[in-house]
Design a protein around this nucleic acid. Structure first.
Length: 442
RNA sequence: GGAAGGGUGGCAGAGUGGUCGAUUGCGGCGGUUUUGAAAACCGCUGUGGCCGUAAGGUCACCGGGGGUUCGAAUCCCUCCCCUUCCGCCA
């Protein structure tokens, strides 16, 4: 969520930044109007509340004095709050009740306006960074680097759905037992899946300094709001029914990891927090029906190892590069040629201020596949999750959060199948997987 | 699924309608003392919002939400979480 205070003090800048993201700017004016009403009502309510509080205390005192002196007079604070001198405590109570009702009305109005503000801000995306290229859609993305070279083939490379058939890709089985978009692997591909997960986790925990976590796969709505999926993207989410409290299946491990320290104030010595977790990911892919349907490039359930960093604001840009390098390093060890794309303002995810996508080239499909998306969220998620830290001067401040895939399984598998296929229909495995898979060939 | 007991400030642990944002202890910070250190003693030590240039003022928060009351950490309702026991079970 954006900072209402920043919007209040920098309305023009806020609009300028959001315009780059194709956001309807009327939301800013709406929010500013509500903000003015909220503050006015709040101040009024509090002033009245203060005199009511003082008078209520005075009533207690008055009772005490009346026990000793039969005709003791009410205290000044009662007279001040009521505007006149009550005859007896019962009259004071009655008048204070009326005053209390007035306070409630004012406070309710103020609170409603604050909720209105939040409702609107919850669906506004983060500001893009100054470095983010401005663009309408994915055509505005910029290639920042490329690594490796697509292997040369002396035959026409096949798409993974043709290669996979031989190695236990049984999409029709998944379709029969769950529906389309739920892959079923038997034998080599199932084993490769496991090899990838183990390789990822070992690499990140041993060489990249991440702490392995094991997390719930079902979460509360509030957890999804913390990381930004709710309320706006509820259509993308699988949800259990009321018997199970309407829990949601996680679309990525980012969700539980971002809420790991939600509501806490972390000592600065503990930062940065670098966490990694393997989880299945569940996505409805609503609106993507009919897109990328062949093979398993876009599915409703897939495995992924996620990288997540919580850091102080002055380090987040640096951490973003480091995090992205960890993901890239993973691809390099897998010997997969890739490119780093910097997403433009029109294509960036909701909460990101800056985002790199890593794409692997799939020669069979003749197509680049996104295998990782590394984002810096600045304080956008931290504000929602109330995730703060205490600095060396004991000031509390919102943390910055970052995350990226390190990596997803299915598309990396596609990369392996299509890049390392041979004319004979075999698939060579990258060296780093030999030990994990138990063989040099799939 | 059943039964019981709990959720209070960094931690421990009081507080059952009024002056309690909250006794006390520990920890932490500052000071006195000391050649230095320890000990002792004194003071300070939560978060967020609103008003204000500031000083400061004020409101809210004792798991979340709602209610009763002039007034609630304290009473009522509801939800969540934790602990223990029983049952069931990978």
């Amino acid at each position: 969520m954006l900072d209402i205070k920043f919007i209040r003090e920098n309305a023009a800048k806020a609009k300028e930044l959001l315009a780059k993201r194709n956001v309807d700017l009327s939301v800013i004016d709406d929010v500013l109007k509500l903000d003015a009403v909220w503050r006015e009502q709040k101040t009024k309510a509090e002033t009245k509340q203060a005199s009511l509080n003082a008078a209520s205390k005075g009533v207690g005192e008055w009772f005490g004095r009346l026990k000793k002196v039969a005709n003791a007079a009410p205290g000044d604070e009662i007279v001040k709050a009521l505007g006149r001198t009550p005859e007896n405590p019962d009259e004071a109570k009655e008048l204070l009740r009326v005053l209390g009702d007035e306070v409630n009305v004012l406070a309710r109005v103020a609170e409603d306006r604050l909720k209105d503000i939040e409702t609107r801000l919850l669906v506004v995306p983060n500001f893009p960074s100054d470095a983010t290229p401005v663009g309408k859609d994915e055509t505005g993305n910029v290639v920042r680097k490329t690594w490796g070279e697509t292997p040369k083939f002396d035959f026409a490379p096949k798409p993974h759905w043709d290669i996979g058939a031989k190695f236990g890709m049984e999409m029709e089985v998944g379709g029969r037992i769950s529906g389309s978009g739920f892959p079923f692997f038997r034998g080599p591909l199932a084993r490769l899946e496991r090899a990838l997960i183990n390789f990822y986790l070992d690499l990140h925990t041993r060489d990249h300094g991440y702490t392995e976590c094991w997390v719930p796969y079902m979460v509360r709505g509030e957890t999804l709001q913390n990381s930004g999926q709710l309320p706006k993207f509820i259509e993308e989410m699988y949800r259990l029914d009321d018997r199970d409290a309407g829990l949601f299946l996680i679309p990525t491990a980012e969700v539980p990891l971002t809420s790991y320290k939600a509501g806490e104030i972390v000592p600065h010595e503990q930062l940065p927090l670098r966490l990694t977790a393997f989880t299945p990911c569940f996505r409805r892919e609503a609106g993507a029906a009919g897109k990328d349907t062949r093979g398993f490039q876009r599915v409703h359930q897939f495995n992924k190892v996620e990288l997540m960093v919580v850091t102080r604001p002055d380090k987040s840009a640096e951490e973003h590069e480091t995090l992205t390098r960890c993901a890239e390093h993973t691809l390099e060890l897998l010997e997969l040629p890739y490119r780093r794309l910097e997403l433009c303002t029109g294509d960036m995810g909701f909460g990101a201020t800056r985002c790199y996508d890593l794409e692997v080239f799939a020669p069979g499909m003749q197509k680049w596949l996104e295998v990782s998306s590394c984002s810096n969220f600045t304080d956008f998620q931290a504000r929602r999750a109330k995730l703060r830290f205490r600095d060396e001067n004991k000031k509390t401040e919102l943390c910055h959060t970052l995350n990226g895939s390190g990596l997803a399984c299915p598309r990396v598998m596609i990369g392996i199948l299509e890049n390392f296929q041979t004319k004979e229909g075999k698939v060579r495995l990258p060296k780093v997987l030999h030990h994990y898979y138990g063989s040099e060939w799939l």
